[in-house]
Amino acid sequence: MRDLGAERKRQGKSPGRSVAVLGVMATLAILFGYVEVLIPFNFGIPGIKLGLSNLVVLYALYRLSYREALAISLVRVVLIGFLFGNMFSLAYAATGAILSLSVMAGLKKTGVFGILGISSAGGTAHNIGQILVAYLVTPSLPLLWYLPILMIAGLITGLIIGGLTAVLLGRTEAVFRKLG
């Protein structure tokens, strides 16, 4: 975090402000994860959810940087894991989150893809990561059935999140610029 602060300072932004922004975003990500439960989004297949908190991470990836998005994502995963989950759910969430963000950051860096493509690839990668962990915990072949289904689900949720983030990025542009 000190590194991050120094980096921001070089860019002429105060580390305190940076920490504040990251804190607010991490809080938002955690809250979104909670609010999500209230939104009915159900294919009748267990394990599929919208992934609203990914909205914050994707937003951070675009508005801030890869490292800051990673920080927000990890803080969220660890806090949620300690508060409401156990070691297993933490491992699931962390793998999904890291894999998803890595894929999104990598695709973004190529400069070839737009936010919808990046987001849907991220959603897919997130679900692949979860199946991967599940398979490592209990190796069973029927589990692989979930893989293509969850990939498509991740694609759809990724598209939705990508679209929402695009709108959000556009609407908050002015505000963020004013904050500097």
């Binding site: 919808l116 493509g117 498509i152």
Partner: peptide, 15 residues
């Protein structure tokens, strides 16, 4: 642009 040609290719190949 929200959806580039490369995005469509990416999404379709995942699908």
């Amino acid at each position: 642009k929200l959806l580039r040609k490369s995005d469509i290719v990416l999404i379709l190949s995942i699908l």
